[in-house]
Design a protein around this nucleic acid. Structure first.
Length: 268
DNA sequence: CGGGGCTCCTGTGCGC
DNA sequence: TGCGCACAGGAGCCCC
């Protein structure tokens, strides 16, 4: 599952490979991936355009291309963006001016690609909360935001309008590191807990980026390489195993329909 | 406005 | 051994 660290890793990989190249052609093998405009118009509008720069906002990748357009990509659960040779399973395949390919692969077909004039006006991007690794995201903001809400803290961390880029893996990991039970109501956290959670969110995201992401499910980077952070995960997928801190058995519950692992001893 | 449940999709892994 | 079903999950959407 690509979350902020995985999308950031893909972004950095693509920056080394495709900046300055032109998009010669597009093969749309599964048209439902293209959300706007209509696949035929999408193809016509993007052909011959130059890739100028790449940015990330939350879990979105945004490619700035010539003629003031933006290619907005969300990988959802199983999306991949792989630079290299043409791949059989690719759902949408961009043919580049250097003869290489940019493959959009996506086993479960939840991924989305759009071509827009103004990426900030894409509805779901427009509603995103702050970037957790930005300087503007500071403890004062976070503290205020948390106190205003009254939902279970794990659901809040995964709410993209509250904070952008955190998904099921890093929400669980940040809460474990901060020693906070995922079902705690956000407004019940004391100052120390809020401080600790704030610190651990940044820390786990930065560490995961340093290790090039976690290869849960199908995640690979822009070169098709797996990440190295899975072995550093302390609760995700570890139900029934013993806690690394206290040897208690890791428990798994459901929150908002999503699996949630935590240590009943360390997280209170 | 908020929270719960459903939906999209397909490979995996379980029980019978 | 093989079939069928539940399950996994990001985020939009509907409903109460």
């Amino acid at each position: 599952m690509p979350e902020l660290p995985e999308v950031e890793t893909i972004k950095r990989g693509l920056e080394e490979r495709i900046i300055g190249l032109k998009i010669k052609d597009v093969k749309i093998n599964v048209s439902k991936i293209i959300k706007e405009p209509q696949p035929q118009d999408f193809k016509e509008e993007i052909m011959g355009k130059k890739i100028l720069s790449i940015l990330r906002r939350g879990k979105y990748l945004i490619l700035s291309i010539s003629s003031d357009k933006y290619l907005v990509i969300h990988l959802k659960l199983t999306g991949q963006l792989i630079y290299g040779t043409e791949e059989q399973q690719s759902r949408v395949c961009f043919i580049l001016s250097n003869g290489k390919y940019l493959n959009f692969n996506d086993l479960r077909l939840f991924g989305e690609i759009r071509l827009v004039k103004d990426w900030t006006q894409v509805k779901s991007i427009n509603k995103l909360g702050p970037e957790p690794l930005d300087k503007s995201f500071n403890i004062n903001n976070f503290s205020k935001m948390i106190c205003k809400k009254k939902s279970k803290i794990k659901l809040l961390l995964m709410d993209q309008t509250f904070i952008a880029g955190i998904g099921n893996i890093y929400a669980q990991e940040a809460l474990f590191r901060a020693g906070i039970h995922p079902e705690r109501l956000s407004c019940s956290l004391n100052d120390n807990e809020i401080k600790s959670l704030f610190r651990e969110i940044k820390e786990v995201l930065n560490e995961a980026i340093r290790y090039r992401g976690s290869s849960i499910d199908d995640y690979v980077d822009a070169n098709g390489k797996k990440g190295d952070f899975e072995s550093h995960l302390q609760v995700y997928g570890r139900q029934g195993d013993t806690c690394f801190k206290c040897k208690e058995k890791i428990k798994k519950i459901k929150l908002g329909g999503r699996g949630t692992c935590f240590c009943p001893q360390c997280q209170t």
